[in-house]
Design a protein around this nucleic acid. Structure first.
Length: 155
DNA sequence: GCCAACGTTGGC
DNA sequence: GCCAACGTTGGC
């Protein structure tokens, strides 16, 4: 399958691109949204590139790059009663929730802000720039991805 | 299977 | 911290 591009959101209080740079890679546990789950379980492939997006930040926006290093597999935090993400309805034999592992690629040392994304030609249809776009795992078109990379060079 | 109520997300 | 927009739940 051809390489795909994604955007993954996270609040800085939970995890940042700096944390990923330190850790090298991390498992993206805790996604509890069916659409996002489906993307991770069905569509993400090792090598796909990811825009790392900081939500609820100042400013919110893309802060770096990551890549998929492990394709979708069951999210073990759903089975962990001590986890914040525990879901009693998820069955180990037939897991409800999935996650992927992402690896560090690049830290922008700045933010391509949502405001910039919204005002950049070619990104009008990008999911994250749409009003009320709450999905935490989103597909990104190849040209949108490349435009964001260009914007990152100007930070 | 509809839809109101509820909880959560996320920009501001 | 507010609140609009959204996804999910649950009563019917």
């Amino acid at each position: 399958m051809a390489k795909r591009y994604w955007l993954m959101k996270c609040e800085p209080s939970a995890y940042t691109i700096d944390d990923l740079a330190r850790d090298g890679s991390t498992n993206w546990e805790g996604v509890r949204n069916f659409k996002a789950r489906n993307y991770m379980r069905d569509d993400m492939q090792v090598g796909d590139e990811v825009l790392f997006y900081a939500s609820n930040a100042e400013p919110s926006g893309v802060t770096g790059l990551a890549k998929i290093v492990k394709a979708g597999y069951p999210d073990s935090s759903a089975f962990n009663k001590k986890s914040h993400y525990y879901d009693e309805d998820s069955d180990k034999a037939k897991p409800t929730w999935f996650m992927v592992d992402i690896g560090f690629v690049k830290n922008f040392h700045g933010t391509v802000s949502l405001e910039t994304l919204k005002s950049t030609k070619g990104l009008e249809k990008m999911m994250v720039t749409q009003k009320g776009s709450r999905l935490s795992v989103q597909p990104v078109a190849k040209d949108e991805f490349e435009i964001v990379l260009k914007l990152a060079k100007k930070i």
